[in-house]
Amino acid sequence: MTLHDDLYGIQKSCYSQNTKTGEYFVKENGISYIVSGELEAFDGKTVHRYKKGDIVLYKKNTLIRFVKYAQPTNVFEAISVVFDDTLLQEYAQRYHICCAQLPEQSLYKVKSDILLNAYFTSLKSYFSREITPALAQLKKEEAIHLLLLHNETYKNVLFHFATPGKIDLEAFMNNNFRFNVPLSQLAFLTGRSLATFKRDFEKVFKTSPNKWIQQKRLEEAYYLLENKKMKTKDVYLEVGFETLSHFSYAFKKHFGIAPSNV
């Protein structure tokens, strides 16, 4: 069973299967509270793990792969509040807030806080009734206020409005080749148009993005199968293939053997 309620950016997600996996291109800043179950999130560099009662602040323009675990409660549930740029810009203008420096991380585990815990507990009752957009706006502003009261440096995450600047393409791709997202999103995150991204990519890697990504994923898959003794059914998802059949076909074509024989 999967349930997803959205009250103008205040969201509740509930999954009753043992695990749920997926990938997000995070377009807006937000905060999530783990009501039950556990969450594992990979941002291209680090695997982050969160459990019941944890609060996670996440940065926009980020690639995240997640695994949501329902055990031991048999339900994974989270309440999230999404902050769109218009809301944040109006809030920053009203309270004269400026971003002091660029955010260094994609995910921030917010330390236990009585006020924030009480805030998310209060949101639970909102999903059983209709609320107005104006009330949702007030509740989102309350979350921003509580976050800044808890840790003022979070303003660098919430109020950083610039689009991604041009960054080192090689380092970015080596960190993010596992994410199964369109080239246009990868281009955006490196501060390039799609055409410039493809042109710069061929200069750096001497091949096209699609060919390089597939070869890199297959090489990573071989390493995981041979050295980490992972199972084929886990590896294909780990390295970014959509289906097991496509992975098995591409692997055998590239290495001459089936992944199950490594």
Rank of each mutant, 00 (worst) to 15 (best):
L189A: 01
L158Y: 13
F201K: 00
K206F: 11
V157I: 14
F201C: 01
L149T: 06
L116I: 07
N175P: 02
D113C: 09
G165D: 06
N174M: 06
K211A: 08
L186G: 01
F201R: 00
V110L: 07
A195F: 01
F179W: 04
Y119D: 01
A134H: 13
A92C: 13
K111Y: 08
L147N: 08
K166V: 02
L183C: 02
I97P: 06
L186S: 01
H150A: 13
S80G: 10
F179H: 02
L158I: 08
T153C: 14
V82N: 12
T132D: 12
R129T: 07
N176A: 02
K139M: 13
R192V: 02
H96M: 04
F177L: 02
N156T: 09
Q89D: 07
S193W: 05
A118T: 13
K216C: 04
N156P: 10
Y126R: 07
S125C: 11
R199N: 09
L186P: 02
M173W: 08
L189Y: 00
I131H: 14
V110H: 05
L115P: 00
T86I: 14
F201M: 02
V204E: 07
L87K: 13
E142W: 15
A162R: 14
V82C: 14
L115C: 01
F201Q: 00
T190C: 08
L115M: 03
F201D: 00
P209W: 04
Q214C: 09
N180C: 14
D85G: 10
A134W: 14
L87T: 15
E141M: 08
Q101L: 04
A195M: 03
K124R: 13
R217M: 06
T207P: 04
M173K: 03
I167P: 00
R129W: 08
G191F: 03
R199K: 15
A100P: 03
R192N: 03
L186Y: 13
L87G: 15
K216F: 01
F83R: 15
S193Q: 15
M173H: 05
K124Y: 04
Y108M: 03
R129A: 09
F120P: 02
Q214M: 10
Y154P: 10
N210Y: 01
E202A: 09
A143F: 14
L88W: 13
F188W: 11
L158P: 12
E104W: 00
H150G: 09
C98F: 11
R199W: 08
E90C: 12
A162N: 10
I97N: 10
Q93G: 06
T153R: 06
L189V: 00
S122A: 14
D200E: 11
F188D: 03
Y126E: 14
C99I: 12
T190I: 00
K206H: 14
S208W: 05
P103W: 04
T153F: 07
K140Q: 13
F120R: 04
F201W: 00
Y119F: 08
F161T: 09
T86H: 15
L148T: 12
S208I: 09
Y119W: 03
E202P: 00
L189H: 01
Y95S: 01
Q215C: 05
I144K: 12
R178A: 10
R94W: 06
M173A: 06
E152Q: 05
N175V: 02
K111A: 13
S208C: 10
D84A: 06
Q214S: 14
L102P: 09
T163A: 07
K111D: 04
F120E: 07
D113L: 04
D84S: 12
H96D: 09
K109T: 15
Q137R: 15
K155M: 15
